[in-house]
Design a protein around this nucleic acid. Structure first.
Length: 566
RNA sequence: GCUCCCGUGGUGAAAUGGAUAUCACGUCUGGCUUCGAACCAGGAAGUGGGGGUUCGAUUCCCUCCGGGAGCACCA
């Protein structure tokens, strides 16, 4: 239906670029285009004249049973009304499609996406949750276009933060034996506390700072048995926990890269850059002078000969390319790293332009409190787990109060709703924006929220379950405004997905799904399904089934699971 | 100081240069003997200031004001 309309406009506009979408207000028409403006610019005429011309052209060729009415609105919009038959026919196409909304335009493209990136010895906090939601949704939306996607995550298993944590652990030496026999949670807590303690000592106490710097070297060189054992234990505890979190959030990583495995490659790249004159020595360190490119200087290897994040990241890029020979590499990080990443990309561009040209950096905002910034060094972070627990508590008895769900079922459903609520709140807005976080207010279960979407789906499933088996129907029975509006909304689904895939941002898709859910709810409110007359009933059941499927497919792209009852 | 990001009803957000700025929360009004009220219907309330480009600016450019992040050996 939309394709047909697009063809008609395109034919009349002689391939000028234009947009086709819904107008601001339903009263303006079913669909609208700005094609006349483009034509006006190209042909040097007034938009309103171009619109008049296009209207005449389109009216001449468009079948009456397809296009009901076409309107010119100043200063040059063209508004279209389609016939009920056109819309009903379109529903037949949508209902019959095997994978409605999914395309193959990226078929054959190999894409890798790196995101989440939690660091062992540190907490998995809500920043990681944000990175995960964004990275996962990008991965999924690209997959819908036929690309082959590999998910990656990268963690800092060496470096100063590790030394700080080990220092903190050594300070509580006598605790260690008993902690190791305690629950995973207690072990995790022990290490988180150790890190906070080490960090504060590093900042406040000269002697401790020296010790930690020394420890950093010890860890790096693996020269002390006791330290090694401690390190292995801490690393294992963290990683085990991260795997659980990834599973909870619905991410399956093809590979987890570690800093410790990319340092060598990174140092080689730095060596190479030095030889080529891209990097230079300065004050005992190896740096890139970014100023000629409007960037700033960054250190790649410090004066002690230890590679910094920059060098390791270079090594990581090379390793990724060797491992996956990708067509596109997407890296998701917080936007505090934007400037730094620009420098890195510049160096890559000079050193390995083929890889640099395929690399895209996406930066996301942070979860902030109204009161200020979070810092894992100071220990005032909100962990992902604490957040989810809090939401679950707030959901409380409300889950499953209509159905008598068993405690086990209730737990599963609560988990899905909690995760859906967080993910949706992250994904509904553009990725660069910070999210101001407020426990009381931020997460709503009503209105524009994850649970609203899941609820619309639950209602659909409820109707379908009560209906039992039903056949394909005569869609000529779909004649009310509510039904036709719903079909029109459904017709916009493929466009919403491909737009999200192009932009590598799903906020528009989230908005579309919310819009769809509203339209669906409005339909439920006014048009009974099960009690409708024979014929109408079957047609409506099909409409409900397709709507539910689209909701589920769309939510799945956002990484949000649906539930059948809640 | 320099660079980048941001400023939209009381609050949080949307709007690939398109119409009368969209939505949610909160607030006010109405709707459950009806396929699930985590719902639906309706009201009040908004683009930081000033210039410019354009048929058309929340969007692009300039400037001022306000907020955030980054800026040499952390990641």
């Amino acid at each position: 239906m939309l394709d047909r309309l697009r063809e008609l406009i395109s034919g009349a506009a002689k391939s000028a670029d234009f947009q086709l979408g819904e107008p601001e207000f339903p009263s303006l028409g079913h669909f609208t285009t700005n094609a006349a403006f483009a034509v006006a610019k190209r042909d040097g005429v007034k938009p309103i004249e171009a619109a008049g011309y296009l209207k005449t052209e389109i009216t001449a060729v468009a079948p009456k049973e397809f296009l009901a009415k076409i309107d010119v609105a100043p200063p040059g919009f063209l508004n279209f009304w389609l016939t009920p038959k056109a819309i009903q026919d379109n529903f037949a196409v949508i209902a019959g499609a095997k994978n409605y909304g999914l395309e193959q335009v990226l078929k054959g493209e190999k894409v890798i996406v790196e995101y989440t990136d939690p660091n062992p010895f540190k907490e998995f906090h809500i920043g990681h949750l944000m990175s995960n939601a964004i990275g996962e949704s990008i991965s999924r939306v690209i997959e819908t276009q036929g690309a082959e996607v590999q998910r990656l995550t990268y963690g800092g298993d060496v470096g100063l933060h590790v030394a700080k944590a080990v220092f903190g652990a050594l300070a509580e030496k006598k605790e260690i034996e008993s902690v190791r026999s305690k629950s995973e949670k207690e072990q995790l807590k022990f290490w988180a506390d150790a890190y906070v303690y080490g960090s504060s000592k590093y900042d406040d106490d000269e002697n401790s700072k020296k010790e930690i710097d020394e420890l950093n070297k010890t860890v790096f060189e693996k020269s002390d048995k006791e330290v090694n054992a401690l390190y292995d234990w801490g690393r294992e505890v963290s990683i085990k926990y991260f795997l659980e979190m990834f599973a909870r959030l619905g991410s399956r990583f093809a590979k987890n890269y570690w800093e410790s495995e990319v340092t060598e490659e990174g140092l080689r790249a730095v060596e190479n850059g030095l030889k080529k004159g891209i990097l230079e020595k300065s004050e005992g360190a190896i740096v890139f002078k970014g100023e000629p490119y409007g960037l700033h200087t960054r250190v790649f290897v410090n004066s002690k000969g230890i590679p910094t994040y920059e060098a390791k990241e270079l090594g990581l890029a090379i390793k990724k390319f060797k491992d996956f020979s990708f067509d596109r590499s997407i890296v998701v990080t917080a936007n505090e790293q934007s400037d730094y990443f620009r420098v890195l990309l510049k160096v890559m561009d000079l050193l390995m332009p083929d890889v640099a040209g395929k690399t895209v950096h996406i930066s996301h905002g942070m979860m902030r409190f109204a009161s200020g910034k979070m810092s894992s060094r100071k220990g005032n972070v909100i962990t992902a787990e604490a957040l989810l627990e809090q939401i679950k508590k707030k959901l409380g008895e409300r889950v499953g109060e209509e159905d008598d769900l068993s405690p086990a079922e209730r737990e599963v459903v609560t988990e899905k709703i909690a995760i859906g609520a967080v993910k949706y709140s992250i994904l509904r807005q553009s990725p660069g924006q910070d999210i101001v976080f407020d426990f009381e207010k931020s997460l709503s279960f009503e209105g524009d929220s994850g649970p609203y979407l899941q609820y619309a789906y639950v209602r659909a499933m409820n109707i379908l379950n009560k209906a039992g088996n039903f056949d394909k129907a005569d869609y000529g029975f779909l004649s009310s405004e509510e039904e036709l509006a719903l079909v029109r909304k459904l017709s916009l689904f493929p466009g919403a997905i491909s737009f999200a895939a192009e932009r590598l941002a799903v906020s528009g898709l989230a908005g579309y799904l919310y819009d769809l859910a509203r339209t669906v709810n409005r339909f439920y409110e006014r048009k009974p399904v099960l009690k409708a007359d024979r014929g109408v009933r079957e047609a409506r059941l099909n409409l409900v089934a397709v709507s539910a499927k689209v909701l589920r497919t769309g939510l799945n792209i956002l990484g949000i699971q649906t539930v059948d009852r809640m």
